[in-house]
């Protein structure tokens, strides 16, 4: 029992029976704390631990009728099947590719936005811009899908009806034209998350000691110099840490973005299928549980390795920001 680690050295000399009772007595003394922790512990057990133990389903030929225990083991067959067509490589490529693109673009734009926000004088004006810019972050993906549909609806949408047609160009059937979607999804992602992302950097900037700037002003540095020589160097560690932490989630796509905004349109999958939508569609649309469980386990394992290694790195740089 873990409680042993905390007990005093005097305990070691105690009789064996006593030694077994001490931790229990310590636990009994803090039974109120145990009781308070209990609901959370049970919730994590149900919502997180039971599914974790369920990963063995990836090695079974799962069948709803036979149930979890009754289904036959089939070794690595699910994984062979998963990799048989080569589709999975494309899907992994999309997942990682979109994440890398989002990471690079969002980081650059968020930092830029934070630097510019810091140049806005006047509290009210600055707060107003901040409010508007972070608003999209609090809108559900379903509503975002509506907003995008307003522009891209092939029959009535703003882009086809008010931009392309007046220019004499033919309207595009957006939800059947996969080649445009890497750009569309990137724009939507930027729209939704850059404003919010910039707030973290802005908080760092606000925390920088004003004396640096005063000293720089005395030495004749203008705003541009102050920005590039003081503010930016202070931001670099934060950028590094946040980038590393995002790398931990390289294998997890934003399901809502890829499922809702594309309206889960079959013809767009060529460029928009990611692991999360693949697992969802396999499980709840086509009912192929074996593909869902093997792809899901693959995602979990790679995700775990990434998160742990990234955190080991982060801990070396700045132990406060690491998870463990």
């Amino acid at each position: 029992m873990n409680a042993m680690n905390h007990t005093a050295p005097a305990l070691q000399a105690a009789a064996p029976a006593d030694r077994a009772r001490r931790p229990l007595r310590a636990l009994w003394k803090t039974r109120a704390l145990l009781l308070l922790a209990l609901p959370g512990v049970v919730l994590l057990l149900v919502n997180n631990y039971l599914p974790m133990f369920g990963v063995f389903l990836a090695f079974k030929d799962f069948n709803y009728a036979k149930g979890i225990w009754g289904s036959e083991w089939n070794g690595l067959d699910n994984f062979k099947f998963l990799f048989a067509t080569g589709d999975i490589w494309k899907i992994i490529g999309h997942t990682v590719g979109y994440n890398v693109a989002f990471l690079v673009i969002n980081t650059c734009l968020s930092v830029l936005l934070a630097l510019l926000l810091n140049e806005v004088r006047g509290r009210i004006r600055s707060k107003f811009y901040q409010s508007v810019l972070i608003l999209p972050n609090f809108i559900s993906m379903v509503v975002v899908a509506y907003l995008v549909f307003g522009f891209l609806n092939p029959d009535l949408g703003f882009v086809n009806k008010s931009i392309l047609e007046p220019l004499g160009r033919e309207g595009v059937s957006w939800y059947m034209a996969p080649q445009y979607w890497p750009y569309i999804l990137t724009i939507v992602n930027v729209w939704k998350s850059v404003g919010f992302g910039s707030i973290i950097y802005l908080a760092t900037i606000v925390g920088i000691d004003r004396e640096y700037y005063e000293a720089a002003r005395i030495d004749g540095a203008g705003r541009w110099k102050q920005m590039t020589r003081i503010t930016l160097p202070f931001l670099v560690p934060v950028i590094v840490i946040l980038t590393l932490l995002s790398i931990g989630h390289l294998f997890n796509a934003d399901f809502g973005l890829f499922y809702q905004v594309t309206l889960n349109a079959g013809m767009l999958k060529e460029t928009t299928e990611v692991i999360d939508t693949y697992v969802y569609n396999a499980l709840l649309v086509s009912g192929d549980t074996n593909l869902a469980s093997s792809a899901g386990l693959l995602q979990s394992v790679v995700g775990f390795v990434l998160v742990v290694s990234v955190n080991l790195l982060v801990r070396r740089l700045d132990s406060d920001k690491a998870l463990f």
Binding site: L50, M52, A58, A292, S293, G296, L297, F304
Partner: peptide
């Protein structure tokens, strides 16, 4: 750090 995936 670790999740079981959608099916389980």
């Amino acid at each position: 750090l670790f999740g079981g995936g959608l099916l389980p």
